[in-house]
């Protein structure tokens, strides 16, 4: 019974991958969908493309900041809820609300929040007397990246919080009682008991978090579309821009594969670090 499964996987996963890898060596465009072999021309071109380089750096930076921010916020929320005695179930339910939103909806919601004329953020700041005029949140390079990051963190931190909350609640109370007898304070208990024992949960949470952030195309696309003027360009927006809007499908495929090679290397590095930390 293995053969049918392998055949389906080959058809659904392997064939498209191999075919798109082949296309990355061709001049295939959507306007002239003919796969003429052009050696490494696409790869040479993307290495000379400053926007690709900018999108690549932006993506790494965005991933680093967003994943860490969502992780830290999720960790904080999990510990705060774990210490809540009354209303914990209500808090847990509330925590799941952001997870119920489709990323597209989150994108629209935060695009409105950060709209410079009618947005919630500017209106609140103005009402509080903290702002005279308006802040162009989705125009300025760093403010726009920050705004997208806030949307990402809002959507993803609850996932981390729920996983880590489950991990925290599974830790034996006896360990904390023993620490109390030894006179440990809250920080010491967190550092020496909670955090180490959360290791496997952290691994799972980070893996899921990274997957979710790396699928953040919808939010970025809705909020800024990678613009204006490529200011918030990430690989997720630039590859479709090149492959579909500019119709250069072969070049877009090459960009994707360079990204894959680097990310595979990066993932291997991270797994080695995890092994070193004895979590895996």
């Amino acid at each position: 019974m293995l053969a049918p499964s392998l055949a389906i996987i080959a058809f659904v996963v392997v064939f498209p991958l191999v075919y798109s890898f082949y296309l990355s060596f061709t001049s295939y465009t959507l306007l002239k969908p003919v796969a003429n072999w052009n050696n490494f021309a696409n790869y040479q071109r993307l290495l000379q493309d400053p926007i690709f380089g900018q999108a690549f750096v932006n993506t790494l930076l965005f991933m680093f900041v967003t994943v860490n921010a969502a992780f830290l916020l999720g960790l904080f929320l999990s510990q705060a809820i774990a210490r809540t005695i009354r209303g914990q179930s209500v808090l847990r339910t509330l925590l799941m609300v952001p997870m119920m939103f489709a990323p597209v909806m989150v994108g629209f919601q935060f695009r409105w929040f950060f709209n410079d004329q009618v947005g919630l953020v500017n209106n609140v700041l103005t009402s509080l007397g903290l702002l005279n005029g308006s802040i162009p949140w989705l125009v300025d390079r760093w403010l726009a990246m920050f705004s997208i990051g806030v949307a990402m963190v809002w959507m993803n931190a609850p996932v981390v919080a729920i996983i880590l909350l489950a991990g925290t609640l599974s830790i034996s109370p006896e360990l904390y009682e023993a620490a109390d007898v030894d006179g440990a304070n809250s920080w010491q208990k967190f550092r020496s008991i909670t955090y180490p024992l959360l290791g496997p949960f952290i691994t799972i949470a980070l893996t899921i978090l990274s997957l979710d952030v790396a699928r953040g195309y919808d939010i970025v696309s809705i909020m800024t579309g990678g613009g204006p003027a490529h200011r918030t360009e990430l690989l997720w927006t630039y590859v479709p821009r090149v492959a579909i809007q500019e119709s250069k499908f072969g070049l877009g495929a090459a960009m994707s594969f360079v990204t894959v090679i680097v990310t595979v290397a990066f993932t291997l590095y991270l797994f080695r670090q995890l092994l070193k930390s004895r979590i895996l």
Binding site: P16, L17, F64, V67, N68, T207, S210, L211, V213, Q273
Partner: peptide, 17 residues
């Protein structure tokens, strides 16, 4: 662990032609 895990599969999926 405060480093991002980028999962190749996501981008691989984007490459499907």
């Amino acid at each position: 662990l405060f480093a991002p895990l980028v999962v190749a599969g996501v981008i691989l999926a984007a490459c499907a032609a």
